[in-house]
Write a protein that binds this DNA or RNA. Sequence first.
DNA 1: ACACAATTTGAGTATACACTCCAAGTTTGG
DNA 2: CCAAACTTGGAGTGTATACTCAAATTGTGT
Lengths: 184, 184
Amino acid sequence: MARYQVGIQTEARIIEATRSLLAEDGMEATTLKAICDRAEVRSGSFYNLFDSKEDAIIRVVRESIEAVDPDPHHAGTDTVDDLVEAYIRFFDEEPKMARVYVKAALAGDSSANGARRRFLRHHQRRVERFADAMQRGNTSLTPEDGAVQAELLLGALDGLAFRWALDQSFDFPKHALLAAERLV
Amino acid sequence: MARYQVGIQTEARIIEATRSLLAEDGMEATTLKAICDRAEVRSGSFYNLFDSKEDAIIRVVRESIEAVDPDPHHAGTDTVDDLVEAYIRFFDEEPKMARVYVKAALAGDSSANGARRRFLRHHQRRVERFADAMQRGNTSLTPEDGAVQAELLLGALDGLAFRWALDQSFDFPKHALLAAERLV
DNA sequence: ACACAATTTGAGTATACACTCCAAGTTTGG
DNA sequence: CCAAACTTGGAGTGTATACTCAAATTGTGT
């Protein structure tokens, strides 16, 4: 039998509760109890719809990233500048979420590598998009060099973002643009 | 009155227990109980000598980093290449510790920013050393540009290290050297 | 209105954790 | 040898966590 409307709505309420908690108060405040209280749901309902707390968090973070995607339909027309700008925008518009993104990638013990694997896949897709955009902008670039260059640029952006997560007075956009200039 | 010998030895045993736990099994395995068991000490003794678990971890990580410092006496003779090489060496020789380093910087909730502040201070000292080395290698570099360039390089190294923490098959040394070439 | 699947409930489980307290013991300098 | 300072044992505190389960209820297609 198909899903019930009420279940779909509950799921949406839980996602929204998780999203707002992460955005307002960060990872530490986003406990199962807090999510359930805000969504007006009991924990049993939560686990009827989600595999784990991590599951809900990952979905929320992914949605946040997609919301600032310059090319959500993957038409393959975005430039490196577009992609860098989107990256900067994510940190600018959703700072709390960005910190969650960085933390979640490292969270969980070494055995429970579910979250890490997902983040790695996401990173690899991003590397491909950067590499594609780089090759569109420079047709003499080999695919291998494009991939390496994309890893370098994304690495630099991630590192500067990490720096900013440590100290929010750090001028992330300025340094990110400089890094992009030098690494493309 | 001065400290007692027995206390100094206990402290050393706790540090060593913390170090080996972090290096062998990572952050998650390094609970207070595990530290005390391995150091053959009860928790009361631990808290007589350390303010918190975090305190012990930070001391261990700092010692690890200093162990691969190319210029431990700060004579101001190290080159950028030396510093980059030392950074790479740290990740190569102490991979588990390196992951701890990255995680600890983001750990703790937003109120308990003790660890973050310490890591930030350490980062700033490192930026200064990189900037100094850069100016030694290029006398026409202004102090401001040196600082920006140092932030860029360290950001890139941190980001690539983060990438490696996510997936240890990533060739960190290769990318780190490439980044250093382009950003100096 | 019926059957059956989807959903909800909420008390309950397990359990892990960092940290405290203070009496009893030990080391040290004088 | 003494007293003050330091160190230790270890049971105990407090609190928080994610997650489970079986029974009750509700939604849906026919």
